[in-house]
Design a protein around this nucleic acid. Structure first.
Lengths: 190, 190
DNA sequence: AAATGTGAAGTTGTTCACAGCT
DNA sequence: AGCTGTGAACAACTTCACATTT
């Protein structure tokens, strides 16, 4: 999608699997194979229509409407994430932060309200929040996750370096910065 | 490793594949199969010796000595990353930040020096830097990556939402926060 | 009895090779 | 001529089933 958006910006109307694969960092056959799972979109001899393909994918991904997200744990990392502009372009808005110490002095001014934890349940219900970003210390991550699940959150983006245990209908995505570095480090031993 | 460390803290000396798999979020057979690629470490009827297994993995992962890393792009996200404590425990130290505007006012005080871009090549050479964290805007990510590669950096942890093109001996790991959210969002449509 | 280690079976994912459109 | 779409071949990964060991 991001690659297609960039092509659109350049007013390129048609793209071959070869070209698109190159910029997306995958192999052409892979790309074609994957696309066929959703139907036929290309024109043989020509390639894919950028706008059409883009439309298809966004339909497939579901409602592209702005989705509200909350962030729990407004510490170092949380503050950076809550101020991060990159989410909005993709249809997500962090509407509020929650923290045990909502009044803690944060150097960056954050436009979203930072609320105490006990306001979380009502907020989630009232704003029909379905996803949360979890950037609390490891020691309390499971506990906070339990609260989120109990309030009806269905997806958690977990930045804490532990595996959190949730009912199977709840989806967790882990982002572990140390693991990413370790990974790199392992593969660059020469 | 992280799970084993936690078990060690609790002074648990022996663990079954079943238990370890549970806390690591994988399946027991998977875990056993994977471990056998490095040899036999378990005791049938008993399980794995936590210390021994831990030792084996750290040997396998290579030198656990502190590895110096630089961070390029000390903006919102970069500032959070450079102040993030989680890396040190895993053997990485961000030793310096680089930015086009090194003097830009940053609200958080950062203990590492923030240097101008033109100091980067010498710094990398002098400190034998092999890995870099790239948290610059998408528009300049490729350009900065080129500089890093030219200076001899072998691994890049890329936070910008574009695919960067590097020689194949250079390893890139991508972390894309918006993609993670999208992913979640896709799987929680009910 | 409890748990590992592992060949075999099963499943999923990737690439090839090329027929078939435009 | 160029490029897609796709069955078939291939490769990688996961799980099963159970012999084996403590």
């Amino acid at each position: 999608m991001r690659c297609l958006a960039r092509l659109k910006d350049k007013e390129i109307q048609t793209v071959s699997s070869e070209t698109l694969a190159k910029v997306a960092g995958v192999k052409p056959t892979q790309l074609r194979k994957d696309l066929t799972y959703f139907g036929q979109f290309g024109t043989r001899g020509l390639g894919y229509d950028v706008a059409e393909l883009s439309k298809m994918i966004s339909d497939e991904l579901g409602t592209t409407s702005l989705q509200p997200v909350i962030l729990v744990g407004v510490g170092h990392l949380g503050t950076a994430l809550i101020s991060y502009r990159g989410f909005e372009k993709e249809g997500f808005e962090i509407v509020a932060g929650f923290d045990l110490e909502p009044e803690r002095r944060r150097d960056k001014q954050v436009k979203q309200p930072i609320l105490p934890m006990d306001r979380l349940p009502d907020f989630v219900r009232d704003h029909k929040i379905r996803m949360a970003i979890l950037s609390v210390p490891a020691a309390v991550a499971q506990e906070v996750a339990n609260v989120l699940v109990r309030c009806g959150v269905m997806g958690i983006l977990n930045f804490s370096p532990i595996v959190i245990d949730v009912p199977e209908e709840v989806m967790v995505n882990n982002v572990n910065l140390a693991i990413e570095l370790e990974n790199l480090s392992y593969f660059i031993q020469d």
